[in-house]
Design a protein around this nucleic acid. Structure first.
Lengths: 348, 348
DNA sequence: TTGTAGGCGTTATCAT
DNA sequence: ATGATAACGCCTACAA
């Protein structure tokens, strides 16, 4: 008895009115007598009625579902990067309150036997009302296609331009700047950086901030002090070893992600270097564990949950405002959190 | 031209056959001439056709979507606990390969104006083919209702019994045992524990393992050496302070989660205790950062991604095997990872 | 091999 | 205020 879904038709039968009336009653239309509405609602509760999303979607062409592309790339399980979780928290929370559920795209091929299909296709297939994308390089071709379409699309840390698209990200340039300025101020003159992926805005921007910081401190830019990373631990460790093996090794390193900073910490330990005595380290993100890394990781805090919340709001706005018009891209401020991994360079 | 979805009808019109034929061609039925099938498929690709999930769901009553309940409770943003992310990685990966997408339930109330509705209702509303639940206490009433229903349901770290339900979890008892045995073996005799929530199986089981370990080491169980926690950092820190303030403080603490162990580390630092000199610590989970916590956290590793994968497989099996019959609950082995936070007790 | 038509559960447009 | 009825896009007998 419990196993079969109760439909609007069932409600109609039981309450003795037509299915049209039931629908109106349920949806709070005005032109329905208080008596019948009450009866229908009552019945709906008793029978545990829940509208069939599929049917409703079919006719209204709205699903109340927001798609999420969070790529679990080959060697890069983005879902594993702590940054995204916190964003997801904000996103889920905001969207949930707005009455939306999240569809996490996982399947590569459509239901039919056709081969892979594009992100846009997947969105259309599920009729998502909008999409959030994160972790994608900004030159993802399918993302461009998606952005050009009419499906509202907001990127987190990924620039997306289109008729109904927008994006949110932290002020990464400022962050890179603050990190570097902090080191300059402590008296460091040999400051290196380990970049994030340069096919992402955060990667590029943080590097730019670093250069700004150097310039401001009247320190020359040295190619050998700039190493590539991919936001994950291991890349940080490897890059740090390279840097520390230099003839004139840096006395401070700005890693464009806390995870990479953890790698640097590891490398320092492996070389018997003390932090911050022999080496100062600044990270980026302020992940949950930053305080527990080494003597406490000095880092640039970004409001990760806030990014999710903001993205969620942008999505809600895009979905509500029938008239297209993409929301303004949002930039959230960052701040320096000073902990134990930074100090003045060793006197020599 | 790109903005309007191409439907099966459109394909029919363009290819000059009936919509029924198109459907059959698309779905790989045998009774379709090779010629027409080719023509239809070709057209479908050109026009970027993707079947409307809603329509298909309506008629087949299958959605190719798996629901996920990952509760972001009040003070407990479960989505923020690193454990779940890794599980999610495995889940998403496995299910994705099986052709399923994930619906992350976020909205509390149904689309109509009715109030909140039960988990079961939410599943039915979206016609999810199955559900994965994690982070819920096993006495969640709505979970029981869900499990009793015909919707296949598999729990991760939460026991769920029902006609089409099952669950996967690590061998938590063994884990608690190993952790304690390790400390016993090092020579500790005053071993305390900080439990996880006792309304969860992992919480209860790890505690049981701890008791087993004590017994095996011929150490008496002392109530004062058992403190409650909730798997998060702060609870670990608070409990550790209580323990360390005891007249006869423990020389070792087994924290039933790495996050709580991080809290213990923090408390130790606050009291000027050296680890492992003054205090040995064992965690549970082996989260990504365990190696970077303090001098490297000794912990019980559980295969988090494996839990997700296993859960995913159970779901795929449940969905495929039309004939109900709940899969066997699975238990994954754990292992001790020895790092820097454990050592023999200080001689005295 | 292919076309026709009914139905899945809702909403929305007409009448009444 | 309420009742028919036509979509929505697709699948699936049933005919042809």
């Amino acid at each position: 008895m419990d196993s079969t879904r109760t439909t609007i038709k069932e409600l109609a039968r039981r309450s003795g009115v037509s299915i049209g009336t039931v629908s109106r009653a349920l949806n709070g239309y005005a032109d329905v007598s208080e008596a019948t509405r009450e009866r229908v609602l009552q019945l709906a509760r008793e029978l545990n009625y829940a509208p069939a999303a599929a049917a409703r979607t079919l006719v209204t062409s709205r699903s109340n579902v927001i798609g999420v592309f969070l790529e679990t790339g080959e060697g890069h399980p983005d879902l594993q990067h702590p940054f995204f979780h916190e964003v997801l928290v904000g996103l889920k929370d905001t969207l949930g309150k707005g009455g939306y559920d999240l569809l996490l795209f996982a399947s590569e091929s459509p239901q039919g036997g056709l081969g892979e299909h594009s992100r846009l296709s997947r969105c259309r297939q599920h009729h998502v009302d909008a999409v959030a994308v994160m972790g994608l390089p900004h030159d993802d071709a399918q993302l461009r296609e998606l952005a050009r379409s009419s499906v509202p699309c907001v990127g987190v840390d990924v620039e997306v331009f289109g008729p109904a698209s927008s994006y949110v990200m932290s002020d990464n340039v400022d962050g890179g700047h603050r990190a570097t300025a902090h080191l300059v101020q402590l008296g460091h003159r040999r400051i290196a950086t380990i970049c994030g992926r340069l096919d992402t805005r955060p990667g590029v921007d943080r590097l730019r901030g670093y250069r700004d910081g150097l310039a401001e401190g009247a320190l020359g830019y040295r190619d050998e002090y700039v190493r590539g990373g991919d936001f994950y631990v291991e890349s940080g460790r490897a890059a740090a070893h390279e840097l520390l093996a230099l003839d004139e090794p840096p006395t401070a390193i700005f890693a464009a992600a806390d995870l990479m900073a953890a790698g640097v910490l590891q490398a320092a330990a492996e070389r018997g270097l003390s932090v911050p005595g022999d080496l100062s380290i600044v990270g980026f993100d302020d992940i949950m564990h930053a305080a527990h890394l080494g003597p406490g990781l000095t880092t640039i805090r970004q409001d990760k949950t806030g990014l999710g919340t903001t993205a969620g709001q942008a999505i809600l706005a895009a979905v509500a405002g029938e008239d297209g018009g993409s929301p303004e891209p949002a930039t959230l401020p960052v701040s320096l959190v000073q902990r134990g991994t930074t100090g003045p360079p060793a006197a020599r």
